[in-house]
């Protein structure tokens, strides 16, 4: 990481601690903002957050690895999260998963080489009456069929 990048990140985190407060309670909101903006929470960001909140870096790391929407590794700009829980599973998740893997040419847990898409499973997203369902970043897509998936992915291309 370049020094200038580090400095910019430090300023960004300092601003976040100003708006959310520099108490431990602000940890998740700060992590969520960094995750949203940078797609991951880098080693340096974790240490800066620890410094500004006066906690240990390993505590930040412990929190980041606990929550599945936070990550230490860079991810794609678009995170496709296919619901794997029961009703979506019964409604045909498998076919959707196959379609996604073939269309994006990656396996679940991977990111496309152009860093555009990351493909993941997630647990119930509360769209059980309209399964199979998935999230692309914050957008919800329901009643998926393989052909519908292809249409959706096209829109993002």
């Amino acid at each position: 990481m370049l020094v200038s990048e580090k400095n910019a990140l430090t300023i960004e985190i300092e601003d976040l601690t100003k708006s959310f407060g520099d108490q431990r309670e602000s940890l998740l909101p700060i992590l969520q903002e960094i995750q949203l903006k940078h797609g991951h929470i880098s080693d340096f960001a974790q240490q800066e957050i620890a410094r500004l909140l006066d906690i240990h870096p390993v505590e930040v790391y412990g929190v980041v690895t606990f929550y599945s929407f936070l990550s230490t590794e860079p991810k794609g700009r678009l995170i496709v999260r296919l619901c794997q829980t029961i009703t979506c599973d019964l409604a045909g998740k498998e076919a959707i998963a196959n379609t996604l893997e073939k269309e994006l040419q990656i396996k679940f847990g991977e990111t496309t080489p152009d860093k555009k898409f990351t493909l993941e499973y997630c647990n119930c997203i509360g769209m059980c009456d309209q399964g199979p369902a998935m999230l692309i970043n914050e957008q919800v897509f329901t009643k998926l069929t393989p052909s519908k998936v292809i249409e959706i992915l096209k829109k993002f291309n």
Partner: peptide, 17 residues
């Protein structure tokens, strides 16, 4: 603060930063 629980569920491990 060298050690903390990381990950969760059956993946939970005590690890370093």
């Amino acid at each position: 603060g060298a050690l903390e629980a990381t990950q969760r569920g059956d993946m939970t491990t005590i690890s370093t930063f």
